[in-house]
């Protein structure tokens, strides 16, 4: 299918991108790797009138470590996370989750900032950043602000990001205990039917595709902190959630999967 027509602007810098967003208003969208946006445009589910291409901002493609933090430029591609020796050392979870996104061709183009801005509850990396207790740095006309991942996601494909803001950097803590990511799907290339990310030996637990946003499983985290076994903690994984019904899973089955996968992830992360 063919996307609707749009005007195209190339951003020379983050400042330029933000100025272009301000200039074109609500109908403008940032284009990074495009692997979330372009499929939606092909179905004409998204019809932005202006695309601001930030894909050439190579100064936002980096992975830096220091002071116990990994700082990742927003335009860093999934395959760069996957293959980065620095990432494997400082935050192997994010590298491993990046390697599970889509397929290799998708990972060559998709970016960390793009997937966070898209805020798809079925995506892998947003949940991982959430479990890791990450921070998202967003730049707008008035400067930069830091947003805790826990405060970032607000609904289906919605975040606190303003229309004239762009993500410039993502920060996650380095190191930090046992981790695991469980991705359950029917085909390897597909989005997770349910996914569970565990970081920090169970201190951070998040769920993929269990609601309208990536969800921090605070009940599970509390149970682990309180000394519960993995099985006990996992039992509350779906409590209070309203998971979606779709072709692959209804809410009942999703809730069951969330419990099973949470127990597996906690076990793999070292929670007995």
């Amino acid at each position: 299918m063919i996307p609707a027509a749009f005007d195209y602007e190339v951003a020379e810098s983050a400042d330029h991108a933000i100025a272009l967003l301000a200039q074109h208003g609500d109908d403008a969208k940032l284009l990074a790797g495009g692997h979330s946006l372009i499929p939606m445009m092909r179905y004409r589910l998204a019809t932005p009138s202006v695309l601001v291409d930030v894909g050439r901002l190579d100064d936002l493609r980096y992975i830096r470590t220091g002071n116990g933090t990994v700082s990742i430029g927003a335009l860093t591609r999934h395959s760069e996370l996957e293959h980065s020796a620095e990432m494997a050392e400082a935050c192997p979870m994010l590298a491993s989750v990046a390697a599970l996104v889509g397929d290799p061709a998708v990972r060559h183009r998709g970016t960390l900032g793009g997937t966070l801005a898209h805020s798809d509850p079925a995506s892998d990396l947003p949940a991982a950043v959430l479990a890791l207790g990450g921070t998202i740095v967003a730049q707008g006309p008035g400067g930069s602000r830091e947003i805790a991942a826990t405060d970032f996601f607000t609904g289906y494909f919605e975040s606190v990001l303003a229309a004239d803001e762009m993500i410039t950097e993502v920060r996650v803590p380095a190191g930090g205990g046992g981790w695991n990511y469980q991705k359950f799907n029917r085909r390897a290339q597909d989005w997770a039917i349910v996914g569970v990310a565990v970081a920090g030996g169970g201190a951070g637990v998040s769920l993929v595709n269990m609601g309208s946003t990536p969800i921090r499983a605070s009940g599970v985290e509390a149970a682990v902190a309180g000394g519960a076994s993995a099985a006990e903690a996992a039992a509350v994984a779906a409590d209070g959630l309203e998971p979606p019904d779709d072709l692959n899973a209804d809410a009942e089955y999703r809730s069951h999967l969330a419990r099973v996968l949470t127990e597996r992830a906690l076990n793999a992360a070292g929670v007995a």
């Binding site: 299918m1 495009g34 692997h35 372009i38 499929p39 291409d53 061709a105 998708v106 060559h108």
Partner: peptide
């Protein structure tokens, strides 16, 4: 039309990419 099949895969700067999921301007 859903970036699923890979029939359109080409190399962009040496790496595989689905050419149906890129604008030529990119």
């Amino acid at each position: 039309d859903s970036s699923s099949c890979g029939a359109c895969t080409v190399l962009v700067d040496g790496q595989s990419a689905k050419s149906c999921t890129m604008f030529a301007v990119q």
